[in-house]
Amino acid sequence: MNLLGALFQSSIGKKLLMAVTGLVLVGFVTGHLVGNLQIFLPPAKINTYGHMLESLGAGLWAIRLFLLACVAIHLWLAFKLTAENRAARPQGYGVEHTNRATLASRVMLRSGIVVLVFLVYHLGHFTLRVQHPEWSEHTFRLADNTMVRDVYRMTVQGFNSAGISCFYLLGVGLLAYHLNHGLVSMCQTLGLKNERWTTGLERASAAFCWLYFLGNAVIPLSVRGWLPVLSGLIQR
């Protein structure tokens, strides 16, 4: 079997692709979070950042296509592996018994699907701007008088909607939960894990997932005025 064939067809190859695309996406969402946290700075910061990204041109599209490919592979493998796994046990047990598989590990497909729906909405909102086209008409004048899209206002306006905020919290919450199994699992698949440091790895992974969730959650909560100190930083 050639290299690509083995990667896409063998069980370990597929798991490896799952882990690597997962790793890329973890990198992306982490960077994305750091960018988003600029919401607590004056609006010019995040709008400049947004403008900088948009003006990457072909580079932006290259990145977008790469990320999209990762999502596509991750998704396709998730469905394919799940289908194969179900087929591997056509007749189930009369008694279902779980020894130690975590709940997170057992709902990966379901948590992933919710995250996917959220992702589609999110892209529609900010990237394609189909949900609320009127919001994208907001513009912002930078210090050098350039008129750019007012991402800041779009965000604040979005989270003014309780529904969107709740959906957002659910999405990032489940993503964090998904990653809690995903990160450690990735280390196992890449052969980077053993029992001597599993506990440390699991703790680090849990800490990362909590940080990721909280980092994301503070944005809608602050916008909605529920976090007194941080809410004060938001400009309406």
Binding site: E84, N85, T98, T189
Partner: peptide
């Protein structure tokens, strides 16, 4: 042989 894939659950 038709076995399933590992999902690192350690059952």
């Amino acid at each position: 042989a038709g076995f399933g894939n590992c999902t690192n659950q350690y059952e």
